[in-house]
Every structure is written in C-alpha cells, then in structure tokens.
C-alpha cells in the first residue's frame, strides 16, 4: 500500500527503469550469444509477459488499496474469453462480416467481466462491515472470493462446456525483422496492455479519484475522516480490476485463439508470481515482474522443457519472498508490519 504511493512519486520510477535497462542488456547479450532462436524466444516471452502485466496490475491494485488477495481475478480473465466465444458461437456479430466481426463479442465479454467484478465487490466489501482485529481477519474477503471463483467457473462450465474452443479471429499478420517473426496483434496487445497501465498510473497520480484511492491505500480510517467516501471509491477498484482482466482476457483470446474454462488458472498463478516479484502494491513492479515472468517462462521451456517451468518460476518467487519480502521494487515497510 505504501509501495503504491511510493511508486507513484516522481523519481521512484527510476529504480524499475534501471531494472528494465539491465534486463534489456542481459537480453542483448543472450541474443549476441544465442542468435536468432533466442531472440525469437525473448520476443514471445515479452508478448506473453504483456498479458501477465495486465492481470498482475489488477492483483496489485486490489492488494495495494484494499489489502485483499482477489482470487476471482483468474476467473474474470477467463470469463471475457469464454463469454466472447459463446456470443460469437451463438451468432452475436450482428451480421458483421469480415475482419472485425469478433469485436462486438469481445466488448460484450469485457462488459460482462466488469459486471461480475462489481458483483464480487457487493458481497466481499459492501455487505461485509464487521471488524474483527484478529490475525486471520484479512482472510475473510479472500475466502469469499474463492467462493465466487467456484460460482463463476462452474457457471461457465454449465453454460459453455469444458472443451477448448477456437476463438475465431481472422486477424493475422506478421512482420519479420532479421529473421525474428513478430505477430502484429501480439505487438499491438503488448503496447495496449502497457498503455492502459501507464494510463492507470497517470489517473492514480493526478485525478481526485486517484488521490482518494491512494489515501485509502495508506489508511482507510484517516481517509474517511478526511472526507473520502470509501463506499464510493471501493467499487472503482473492482471496476478497474474488471477492466484490466477483461482487457487481458480479450488480448489472450485474439493472440492465442484458444479459449477454455480453465485458461485463467495458468495466467492467474503466473500473474501472482509477477506481482510478488515486483512487490505487492507497486504498479511499476507489476509491469517489470510480468515481463520478467513471461521471459523466464519462455526461456525455461526453451532450455529445460515444459515441466521445469513450475520449479524455476516458483523457486525464484520463493527466494524473492524470503530474501526480499517487499519484492524487487516495493517499499521496505510492506510485509514486515501487520498488513
């Protein structure tokens, strides 16, 4: 929470930037040694990382402002893709044909996701007011969100089935730079994903709502005393969560063309890893973490095979949590005192 505030101060941006430069330098060395194949792996790692970034920012925002590990985020991600597929399968394109016929379905999918996220807010924060003050108190919204995870996932299974579906996107174009193939939709989604996150951090820094969010992150009680209407601000966190997950889900559906009811689990756990790596509550950390996890995953698959990914990513994470609980970019306060 303090990290969120710290990360938004001018100057604090420098540290993550430094890491990005270091990462790029390592990437450049790797390309120099490994040549085209490694370069291709790094490109696909960054593209995958772009999806993780959006989901990780959704996680980090909820933890930073509300101190709440929102387990519905993976399902919200899945919901967009599946709802969009369901709508196209049942003929939503409204007679649109050609290259853009998937577009209304994706927008509708994102809308459903945002709605679902706001429903979660109602039953985890709005109706839940009691203060208990014991050590397991922060687990209560977490447990409710697991309940919602079950509800959404199984509703999707009942209505849309459990098979992996092909998402019909005719949008395919590649560019070729010195033998490295870059898919245009992937590049566009990386840009869009990062763009939305930059926009979000701008909103948090400059607008009145953003200031209120940061105030709640520091201390909900003090914020209330100073006239912040917490009941009005908390839904905004869930609105942003829904939008980010919806965006990530839509981009995933376009880029990887496969959607199924379980696609959120993989991306969700990797996004949690990305968030922890960057430091809880730090948006810039989530960006760097998302890209690092995407890169690590793709390179681990390349060098050690598919089964090793889990060990590599999570061992890295365990070490980060234990040696530097605040993450790579978080403020040192977080993780030590009572959250």
């Amino acid at each position: 929470m303090t990290a969120l505030v710290a990360a938004l101060k001018p100057g604090a941006r420098f540290a993550p930037l430094l890491w990005v430069i270091i990462a790029l330098a390592i990437a450049a060395v790797a390309v120099a040694i490994g040549g085209r194949i490694i370069a291709q792996q790094i490109v696909s790692g960054l593209m995958l990382g772009g999806i993780y970034v959006a989901v990780a920012v959704a996680f980090t925002l909820t933890i930073g402002v509300l101190n709440f590990l929102n387990f519905t985020i993976p399902t919200l991600f899945m919901l967009t893709g599946m709802v969009a597929w369901g709508l196209t399968a049942f003929g939503l394109p409204f007679g649109l044909t050609g290259r853009w016929n998937w577009f209304p379905a994706l927008v509708a999918g994102i809308a459903v996701t945002v709605l679902a996220s706001l429903i979660v807010e109602r039953f985890t924060f709005r109706y839940f007011k009691a203060k208990h003050g014991d050590a397991t108190e922060h687990a209560i919204p977490l447990v409710s969100s697991i309940g919602f995870l079950l509800v959404f996932e199984h509703l999707v299974l009942i209505v849309l089935g459990s098979e992996t579906q092909r998402f019909p996107t005719p949008l395919r174009a590649d560019i070729n730079i010195a033998g490295v193939v870059i898919a245009i939709p992937q590049l566009a989604s990386l840009a869009l994903s990062l763009g939305v996150v930059f926009l979000l951090s701008y909103i948090l820094k400059t607008t009145k709502t953003g200031r209120a969010l940061r105030a709640i992150a520091e201390s909900p009680d003090t914020a209330t005393i100073l006239g912040v209407d917490v009941n009005r601000i908390v839904p905004i966190v869930f609105l942003l969560t829904g939008l980010l997950c919806g965006l990530a889900g839509a981009l995933f559906a376009i880029n990887y063309s496969d959607v199924n009811a379980f696609m959120g689990e993989h991306v969700g756990t990797k996004a949690i890893a990305a968030m922890v790596l960057g430091g809880l509550g730090s948006i810039w950390g989530a960006i760097a973490g998302g890209l690092i996890v995407g890169l690590t995953e793709v390179l681990a698959i390349h060098f050690f095979g598919g089964e090793a990914v889990q060990i590599v990513v999570w061992s890295l994470l365990l070490f980060v949590i234990i040696l530097r609980p605040q993450g790579l970019f978080g403020a040192s306060k977080i993780g030590k005192g009572k959250l």
């Binding site: 977490l142 090793a308 234990i322």
Partner: peptide, 22 residues
C-alpha cells in the same frame, strides 16, 4: 517463511507448494 506476514505468508507457502509439486 515465518519472517513474512499476512498476505506475504499466504503467498510464500503457496509458492512452496508449487515448487514441491513441480
């Protein structure tokens, strides 16, 4: 693991389980 608190503790143990099953 006990150096960590709250959400961090939850995440550290989660990561540990992922490493074991990996």
């Amino acid at each position: 693991v006990l150096r960590t608190r709250g959400v961090y503790m939850v995440l550290a143990t989660y990561a540990f389980a992922q490493v074991v099953s990996g």
